[in-house]
Design a protein around this nucleic acid. Structure first.
Lengths: 217, 217
DNA sequence: CAATTGGCATACGAAGCGTATGTTAATAGG
DNA sequence: CCTATTAACATACGCTTCGTATGCCAATTG
């Protein structure tokens, strides 16, 4: 019943992905030498080409792993509040906070699109978008927001979030920038709200947290 | 009177930038061989290294050229209507349309960030952002929009625009996708509008088609 | 008209990627 | 239990590409 073989293989894959993730995240995709980071995993490029085909294939695997983690985090965050709108707002906030992480910025937001093409084509990125889309669909059904295409709104909101995050992360004063960005973001999001009377809002819908409140520079 | 020297130099630079722009736009930065596209310009890499230092320097120059063109187009578009809000909306629309162009997508939106780092740090990208920021500042002074930080709003709106454009450009049905995206975009933008009475609007500020469409899906 | 600067080409070295070819170890079948 | 085949990896090679160091020629300058 011992299957050391399959386990060893999975371990090899994991080691390669881990080493590549580290190298891509710090040096960037182009500067990361396959010889170097396979060696740091105690392997050679032979293993890499066997499992992933080429360098791009490895990047795909790394991004898939990161994106799975992101989607899981978003699911948890958005499901926590009983208020749907609050859940959506929390989801957006979590999205921004994730996009502040250097590893995600570098691998997913910059190198990924350059090497693999537009993210809207990836199966991975769709995961996060789908999560937001579902939240918006429910809000639309509920009558909390206006009748817009949920996927379209999700993509616009995620685009705004990502750019806000990049702006904040690279700002001289991330704290102040974050405050300004979140405030403007909140105003924009309110554009989605259904303002024709208080039709179907089961709770106060405009309860976005006042700040992203990330750690100081 | 004849300064053929300076003219030749400028011509060489222009030829290099043009050839690189062509190669970067079609093959992408990484796949574009310096030997190949310098040869296509009737030159060698010697000229390139002399004028631009390295491949990244050339990419910077190419992006600067493209961005200057984009900024000029935006200026024209936003200044045309006498209504400030309409000018801003037109500017956003033009921004999306530019982001649909494959050359801009590839060079400015994908390879640029990967090679040169976050665009919010570039002097170039700031040009477009500054244009939008100024429009929003005027709208804010006018009282047409709520009091939000103009640069923050500009970055959010541009982020949403860029993502919308990428989504549209890579969609199976760009026509339908565009309609959905633009509609949702308008709804989001309306979040910026000042709805507390008709305070300071010198003209009808909501000249954007008022088809907010509060009908259910 | 000589000297020097600078625009650009050529030549060289160093990585890095991808492939082709081993080598070893684990499964499958008899 | 023994063999044959497959699969997981390593090794070795060639090709491309980048960056630099060097050289040449024309144009400016005094």
């Amino acid at each position: 019943m011992h299957r050391p073989r399959k386990e060893m293989i999975a371990e090899t894959r994991a080691k390669l992905i881990g080493a590549a993730r580290q190298a891509f995240g710090t040096l960037g995709y182009a500067e990361a030498s396959m010889d170097d980071f396979t060696a740091s995993a105690g392997l050679t490029r032979g293993a890499l080409y066997h499992h992933f085909g080429d360098k791009k294939g490895l990047l795909q695997a790394v991004i898939a792993e990161i994106d799975a983690e992101m989607a899981a985090r978003l699911k948890v965050v958005s499901a926590k509040p009983d208020n749907l709108w609050q859940g959506f707002v929390d989801e957006c906030t979590a999205y921004i906070e994730m996009a502040l992480e250097p590893e995600i910025q570098r691998i997913v937001l910059r190198d990924g699109p350059a090497v693999l093409g537009d993210p809207s084509q990836w199966p991975s990125q769709s995961t996060c978008i789908r999560s937001m889309t579902e939240s918006l669909q429910r809000l639309s059904d509920e009558g909390t927001i206006l009748a817009v295409d949920p996927e379209a709104a999700a993509r616009l909101v995620s685009g705004a979030s990502l750019h806000a995050a990049q702006w904040i992360a690279n700002s001289n004063d991330p704290e102040a920038t974050s405050k300004k960005a979140v405030k403007a973001f909140k105003v924009l999001l309110e554009g989605l709200l259904n303002r024709t009377g208080k039709l179907h809002q089961p709770d106060r819908p405009s309860a976005m947290q006042p700040e992203v409140d990330r750690s100081p520079a």
